[in-house]
Amino acid sequence: MRHETRIAVGPVQFRIGSDWAEPIAALERLYAVYPKDGMRPADATVRLFAARPWRRWLRPSVHIGGDFVVPDALPLPLPMGLLAAEMAMNLQVALGWRRHMLLHASAVARDGRALIMSGESGSGKSTLAALLGEGGDWRLMGDEFTLIDPADGDALAFPRAVSLKNEAIAEVAARVDAARLGPLLAGTPKGDIRHLVPRADAIAAMHEPARPALLLFPRFGGESAVEPMGEGEAFVRLTEASTNYVALGEAGFAALTRLVRETPAFAISYPDSEAGIGLVEHLWAEA
């Protein structure tokens, strides 16, 4: 392809090709501080392409492709190329990664122990993780995916650039150096989006595993509430939150039963981020 770059996030080396220069330049700016190994063969390939040659210039729209393709994925206009790249990278990992059990969950770590938060988009798991990751003792492991090593049950980080959405943008932007923020992508199909580069120490520590110590299933909105969750329900919820549980066979089954048995789990709801962080810190202190 005309333009390409390589990005390593956690254990995954991406090769990203594009028909346009802009999305690659935007990615390289966003991922400038990540470690680079230009010689390392890719684990996952992403393609950003024009469906017809003239669509490179005429109302350019970015189609998402790569090792795995979703047939009905809608293209995005070129100014949203960064979002297209993010979606394409997520897709390749979600559908292609087999080394670890992949949880659609955010995670932060402290003292070698991990807090894992699983929930639908809108649950606030990304925002909570991003805010915790800015506040001192926590290391951001990832806002979207958390990997579980079937061999020993450890959690591994996937600290891609955090995808802040809508209200969370202002909330987080107020606390961080503007140099760590990507461009504002307004009015995307997912609302307003702005990327946040994790702290340098989180990126430097991205290969360090952490022991799962607490599982939370957050829900944004309503009164503050904490509900302990049984092993069975946590198991069911996490099979639904995993994109590759079925593909891992018995290794996935063993990893997941171990995770829910060894890790206390709670459903929490919270009216705002401050209350959410308060609940998290409280539960962490008891875990």
């Binding site: 090769r15 010689m39 390392r40 063969p41 890719a42 390939t45 090792d67």
Partner: peptide
């Protein structure tokens, strides 16, 4: 060569 693997794997 190491970069050859990208295309082969793809």
């Amino acid at each position: 060569a190491r970069p050859d693997w990208d295309g082969i794997i793809g």
